[in-house]
Design a protein around this nucleic acid. Structure first.
Length: 828
RNA sequence: GGGCAGAUGGCGGAAUUGGCAGACGCGCUAGGCUUAGGACCUAGUUCCUGAUGAAGGAGUGCGGGUUCGAGUCCCGCUCUGCCUACCA
């Protein structure tokens, strides 16, 4: 009798219906609460993968539910469309990066539509198009004007064979990915953004991010790496030079038995000068090369040379040897440290290898005043009490740091200070498929920003991409040759392009005014939608993307374009998609292609399964059997609704007031409980898996009781209510089948545009509860009691139970704990 | 080395505030329906003892602790995953 569940026909039918009625359009409406739901936009690599399906399904459930619950929802999508893979594909297949990218976008857009994700496609942005990247350039120019963008020398990976710069991921085992030539380091002038100006605020802003996962905040905190300490100058003996060190433990300075400068430190040439210059110079060259090569490989053996030079400890006047070593980083602190082997494991490691003396200056607090080992074998890194430290003896570490910092300031050889691990953001990329950095170089005027009126600086289409011979733009004469906007004389364009993280640092603003032509976005649109109410995406972007986006937001705020300081007050870090115990990836060959699943089971089943199998923030393990289970559930819902279509026939009113007695009571109660649970699970807890299971429970009860229910008018009304509720509650998860059943049951208008079901707390209330009775911690009996019965009544009832009397065996309870609606616990 | 997260049946997971451990789904078992089915329906399914039942005991990685009561809180471990890594 009932027609079969033809998901393919149903899904395309409703996708068209939604599109025709513009049901996903975001319309700001001051009379309704706004809800900006954002998922991380994808890189158009060619096909949607399961990670995307998961990310976007989670977001879609929440946005659909919010929309039904009355919010004005902004749920946009776009494409992170610039970047290296397009260029690599172009080199490999001889296509143009733009062709390749736009083809991919077209395919992936169809895939997302086929999944039924409720995006406002009118707001789609594509970062590889000039009307988007123009605004990268505009923002860059404003930063340039304020000194937030600047040039400095920096190292890049260089392949001498291909004569080109390589990105880190193009360096494979220290060699070029294409020709395996060993990669060397080359110094080039590059553009940087001054994110360090915002280091303190990026850290203090965490206070507002109460709805971020703790571990993500911790990761960002480590990345920013704030350390309070002091800068101290050591005079280089026999010269007027000083070497400045940074230390977080100035209290240990009496234990400094040597000084170490990084092999990359600018003072190195001076230090190696002298009789052994040749030998030392060679060591330095070798070490620098080694350090650069090993930069991303972990810890290496500590290696160093004694320069023979001495530095003077300003606290003690003591002359200590100056070493050059491979374990001191140039780009942290000052590139020089004081070596305190007794209280720093790395320094001790180094001192032991070279026979440098070790001197204890901090005693553990519990042994202060006692004996201490002058030449300890073990490092003591904790705070303690100063010994061997002249006038500072007896002070606790924290007090000493203050006193000694102040002493250094008073004497003028140091200062208390804070350093950050965070470094300025190098955005120059020597590649084609990126946003051209909008400056020109004029021999007369120097570095000149391109005037706003000349934006965008467009990427020339006619380029040859070979992967060799430097940047493609640098070889493109008509791009490079230009005139200076200031003096009209001949000038050269900058040929570097921007890091694609620039694009993603503000795209969520662009969604608010996607077609704006005067500004990156209209402040009033940003005001209407931002901040993003919920941001969902993989934790792999927890550091870089999320810090850069927070940085850009603060910069845009300082430009006066927005009032918002934190763009994402709520971030949901979605878990990995795995199969057979490891992450789905091409290299592991355990990919499941969403297209194939859509073909066999449809979008609703796929969405339902991916949401049901685990909570959004946990790992999700793919299992085909589980998917089949969800598919079968949809078939069962389809079937039970069809078998009871007569209940929805014209004239039969919607379920009236629930009967107070009789067989309909349990299903009515369960229905209201389910509505409550699903509403909370989606809107408050984000536990979409338990929302689905509670809908299944409601189905199971309806199924079990259906024959009995159908035998009375009250029962029929209750069954109808239950079935209708299942359809409505299911609609954010499996929207197509829900629309179809909504229509089949005689409703007019789109389900997704009808109100979210409301529950009645009174009808959801259980009349009786099961009370557990424990004797000495063991459950001995349970009984039904009226809900909210007073504790004294429960206690009396429990003590009267035959099983409990047996368990007590005549003993008198010493203590009875009674908890309303829960249990009675008897202690003898 | 540092940081973080996690560990619950055969599997994915549930238990929201310290109060019935194992919801829901998968898988499996038995039965029904069927020419047949990997479809559908019914019942069962943490483990152990118990012929079945009744009943009892054990049980949330390991070892302690707090509590009338611990998957949940505290202390100490083990293992797994992720991130980070000479950051002075």
């Amino acid at each position: 009798m009932s027609e079969t569940y033809d998901f393919a026909a149903i899904e395309s039918k409703w996708q068209s219906a939604w599109e025709e009625s513009r049901a996903f359009e975001a319309v700001a409406d001051p009379s309704r609460p706004k809800f900006y739901l954002l998922e991380m936009y994808p890189y158009p690599s060619g096909r949607i993968h399961m990670g995307h399906v998961r990310n976007y399904s989670i977001g879609d459930v929440i946005s659909r539910q919010k929309r039904m619950a009355g919010a004005a929802v902004l749920h946009p999508i776009g494409w992170d469309a610039l970047g290296m893979p397009a260029e690599n594909a172009a080199i490999k297949h001889g296509t143009h990066p733009q062709t390749w990218t736009l083809d991919n976008v077209a395919h992936m857009r169809q895939q997302l539509k086929r999944l039924g994700i409720s995006y406002d496609w009118d707001r789609e942005v594509n970062t590889c198009l000039p009307d988007y990247y123009k605004w990268n350039q505009w923002i860059f120019l404003r930063m340039l004007e304020r000194g937030l963008a600047y040039r400095k020398d920096s190292w890049v990976n260089w392949c001498a064979q291909c004569r080109t710069v390589l990105a880190n991921e193009q360096v494979v085992g220290g060699g070029c990915w294409r020709c395996e030539t060993p990669v060397t380091q080359k110094k080039m002038e590059q553009w940087f953004l001054k994110i360090t100006d915002y280091a303190e605020e990026l850290l203090s802003g965490h206070a507002e991010l109460r709805k971020w996962p703790e571990h993500v905040l911790q990761m960002q905190k480590n990345w920013i790496g704030r350390s309070a300490g002091a800068h101290v100058q050591f005079a280089l003996d026999g010269t007027s030079q000083t070497i400045e060190v940074f230390t977080t433990r100035i209290d240990t300075i009496y234990g400094a038995t040597f000084l170490v400068v990084s092999a990359e430190h600018p003072i190195v040439p001076e230090l190696v000068a002298g009789p052994k210059a040749k030998e030392l110079g060679a060591w330095v060259d070798r070490t620098v090369a080694e350090m650069r090569r090993r930069r991303d490989v972990g810890e290496t053996e500590k290696d160093g040379v004694d320069t023979g030079k001495k530095a003077v400890n300003p606290f003690t006047g003591e002359r200590v040897p100056v070493w050059i070593a491979n374990y001191v980083l140039m780009d942290y602190g000052t590139g020089a440290i004081m070596g305190v082997p007794a209280h720093d494991a790395r320094d001790l490691d180094f001192a032991k290898s070279y026979g440098i003396p070790v001197r204890t200056v901090i005693a553990p607090p519990d042994r202060a005043g006692g004996r201490f080992d002058a030449e300890p074998a073990e490092v003591y890194e904790e705070p303690g009490v100063l010994v061997n430290s002249g006038p500072f003896d007896g002070l606790a570490s924290d007090r000493a740091m203050e006193a000694m910092g102040k002493h250094a300031e008073d004497k003028g050889f140091g200062r208390r200070s804070t350093v950050f691990r965070l470094r300025d953001w190098g955005i120059s990329r020597q590649r084609y498929w990126g946003t051209p950095i909008p400056v020109v170089y004029c021999d007369r005027c120097g570095v000149v920003g391109v005037p706003d009126a000349d934006l965008p600086v467009e990427l020339p289409f006619d380029v040859k991409l070979t992967g060799e011979e430097g940047s493609p733009l640098a070889r493109h004469a008509s791009f490079v040759e230009t005139t200076c906007p200031k003096c009209q004389g001949p000038a050269r364009r900058e040929t570097d392009t921007m890091d694609t993280f620039v694009d993603s640092s503000w795209y969520f603003f662009r969604y608010c005014s996607p077609r704006e032509t005067e500004l990156p976005f209209r402040p009033e649109d940003a005001e209407a939608w931002l901040p993003v109410d919920l941001y969902i995406g993989g934790v792999e972007h927890a550091i870089l993307h999320l810090i850069y986006a927070r940085f850009f937001t603060k910069v845009l705020r300082d430009f006066g374009l927005t009032e918002v300081s934190e763009p994402f007050p709520h971030y949901l870090a979605q878990g990995m998609v795995t199969k057979d115990g490891s992450a789905m990836s091409k290299s592991r060959g355990n990919i499941v292609d969403p297209d194939e699943i859509l073909e066999r089971y449809g979008a609703d089943a796929l969405r339902l399964f991916i949401l049901f199998a685990s909570p959004p923030d946990k790992e999700f393990a793919w299992a085909e059997e589980g998917l089949e289970g969800c598919y079968r559930f949809l078939v069962r819902v389809w079937t039970i609704v069809h078998e009871n279509l007569d209940l929805f026939a014209a004239g039969s009113a919607s379920a009236g007031p629930a009967p107070a007695r009789g067989p309909a009571v349990p299903i009515v109660r369960k229905t209201h409980q389910t509505i409550r649970k699903v509403t909370e699970d989606i809107g408050v807890r984000f536990h979409l898996n338990t929302a689905v299971s509670s809908i299944m429970e409601l189905y199971n009860l309806a199924k079990k009781d259906r024959d009995e229910l159908r035998s009375s008018p009250e029962g029929r009304a209750a069954l109808r209510l239950a079935l209708e509720s299942i359809v409505r509650l299911l609609s954010p998860f499996a929207p197509h089948i829900a629309e179809e059943l909504w229509e089949k049951t005689g409703h007019r208008g789109l389900l997704m545009q009808s109100p979210w079901p409301a529950y009645d707390a009174g009808l959801a209330r259980e009349e009786t509860v099961t009370v557990v009775v424990q004797v000495d911690g063991k459950v001995r009996d349970r009984f039904e009691a009226e809900a909210d019965s007073p504790e004294a009544e429960l206690e009396a009832a429990a003590l009267a139970r035959p099983k409990i009397r047996a368990a007590l065996g005549g003993k008198t309870p010493r203590k009875v704990i009674s908890v309303r609606n829960k249990l009675v616990s008897i202690v003898t």
